[in-house]
Design a protein around this nucleic acid. Structure first.
Lengths: 340, 340
DNA sequence: CTGAAAGCGCTTACAG
DNA sequence: CTGAAAGCGCTTACAG
């Protein structure tokens, strides 16, 4: 592959001029620029990213840290961010923390990120102190999605509000015995989201004078399988709740499968609401709170790009709150009332 | 951040020795190595990847080209590959072609890949000639997953065989009027997989002396939504088929939703089989052919790593065929027979 | 086993 | 508007 030197020779200018002309810098004579462009095209020249990174200190790569890329929510965040970043000439280094505890330590560390990326996007992960400190030392723009994880900008939805809205929907339908099934992440993945959603649930219940016994708070991982297990546990009890608020649609779908297996009719015997408006929610006729997922990735990428363009850090007060929307489908309806 | 020079000074050796000691090269005195290691640790030194790439010509980055990372299949391939690559010290540059036509041209090009990656993993994409040629010019190891896309190693399942097995299952249950709903990618994403699966379907039908009228071959995109549309079209006809073979589980789930909407009982009035054993297949009680997805990603990564370690290309005859398995659930059963 | 020096291929003040 | 030269921070023959 040709080097800048070859282009310089072919165009009859210095390498400095080639560099300037190709990057569109001002103060290059139009005719000179054209000659350089022509020579570069003829030689199929592309600047070595590695060399220009070393010289300029910029890599044009953004690290995207994701707990697990196989979840619908995360894959869509990544897709959204990746689209925007690529459109602006940035590449995505995918840092998939993965399901395994040990993996985590290898992702947000100096070895991985040092001098390798111009900025970092952290998706939902609650960072350890040592990771926060490292990101700080790196002195590069950082944005988190989903939750504030440090002194950086954040793009998110209002989880407490979302949970309150979902719970209010159930209460409005007449339900009083409502269970919460919330994500419990692997120990090494510290999300704060499930806690916020539970708090919203509890606030709504309290606001209506409803008690929430401990047995109505179930933990589950973020998968359909987890929701299924939680649902079976919950619905096989002597007195099952009449409604379930699940912290995600995948969990909610699991609860619906459990209900189907146990022969419970939805919604006459059990109402279920989730959060996300997952691609499959329609298929399950699932009532849910829609959140814009790829848009959150896109938005976070734009915030990052802005800082990158300005050569500044992301203002740590930056907080973009995206709208959510109650989508009523067939999985929720008026509830039965147990006697006192 | 400290440079190699700082470590050399602190350890009282040359930068060359630091470089050798830190990379574990032989012919370094043990005591020297220890001194260097200690100094490096004290200074929190990490070699600048950009500088060492420029000097060595190796980036320790693998480009992973994926049509869209939001599909279950692709997200799982990426997760599998990423896990193995990171375990071996390689990073993943995510090249998400995305849903938009124009995006494609920006991914497999010199601008993106030139000198930026040590190897490339291509997932399912059928490459254009110009892309094939570029990958060739790059002179780096390439492996494709899912389909042979050029003179490179491939990791895949036997799509024709899988489709035949699925079709035989339906025929074995007594079905004779079977429709195929197959993926039709966006025009710029040229998959060959749907064609292979259709061929397997047709082979099985022919093998049993069954005709396949054109109206029994339906195209659909690879989503539940696509399967739903195809299913509605198919099942609203005067004489719907008694069974459907869908080219993927997501499509199959869409067909199931269509059946439910139209009030058709599964499996007594309609049998449906898919391919994948998608995470949600269980919830739909879907009969399917299971394929190991993350394992295909892991396997492809290993083939790449082997070539990288050997400093060779991947032998273009390399072909790893992974096993699949029929998983019978409740969505298939004996079919009705229409009169002649 | 170790070091001096060249070289990887760019970008960027600094002069002019 | 353009060029000569230094410098980015490593690795790698080549000597010794």
């Amino acid at each position: 592959m040709s080097r800048i030197e070859d282009v310089a020779l072919a165009a009859g200018v210095s390498t400095a001029t080639v560099s300037r002309a190709l990057r569109g810098l001002p103060k290059v004579d139009e005719r000179t620029r054209e000659r350089v462009l022509a020579a570069a095209a003829r030689l199929e020249y592309v600047a070595s990213p590695t060399a220009s990174s070393l010289a300029s200190g910029k890599t044009r790569v953004v690290g995207v840290v994701v707990p697990y890329v196989t979840r619908w929510y995360f894959a869509n965040l990544v897709a959204g961010a990746s689209r925007v970043l690529r459109a602006h000439g940035y590449h995505v280094l995918l840092l998939d923390v993965g399901e395994n505890g040990p993996g985590r330590s290898m992702v947000i560390d100096r070895q991985t990120l040092g001098k390798r990326v111009d900025a970092v996007l952290v998706l939902q992960l609650q960072l350890h102190d040592i990771e926060t400190e490292l990101l700080h030392q790196l002195r590069i723009p950082v944005v988190t999605v989903g939750t504030r994880a440090g002194p950086w900008g954040v793009v998110r939805i209002d989880d407490v509000d979302v949970a309150t809205t979902a719970t209010d929907h159930l209460i409005g339908l007449g339900h009083t015995d409502i269970a919460y099934v919330g994500g419990e992440p692997a120990p090494h993945l510290d999300f704060v989201t499930p806690t916020l959603r539970r708090r919203g649930f509890e606030l709504a219940m309290e606001g209506h004078g409803l008690r929430v016994p401990a047995r109505r708070l179930i933990t589950s991982d973020w998968t359909l399988r987890g929701g299924l297990a939680a649902g079976e546990r919950l619905l096989q009890a002597r007195r099952p709740p009449t409604a379930v608020f699940a912290a995600s649609d995948e969990i909610a779908m699991g609860v619906l499968v459990a209900a189907r297996r146990l022969g419970l009719d939805v919604p006459s015997e059990l109402s279920v609401i989730g959060i996300d408006d997952h691609e499959m929610a329609l298929a399950f006729d699932l009532t849910t709170i829609r959140q814009p997922v790829p848009e959150q990735g896109e938005c976070a990428a734009r915030v990052l790009l802005q800082a990158l363009a300005a050569g500044t850090d992301v203002d740590q007060d930056t907080e973009v709150l995206l709208d959510t929307e109650l989508v009523v489908r067939g999985s929720t309806g008026p509830g039965h009332h147990h006697g006192p």
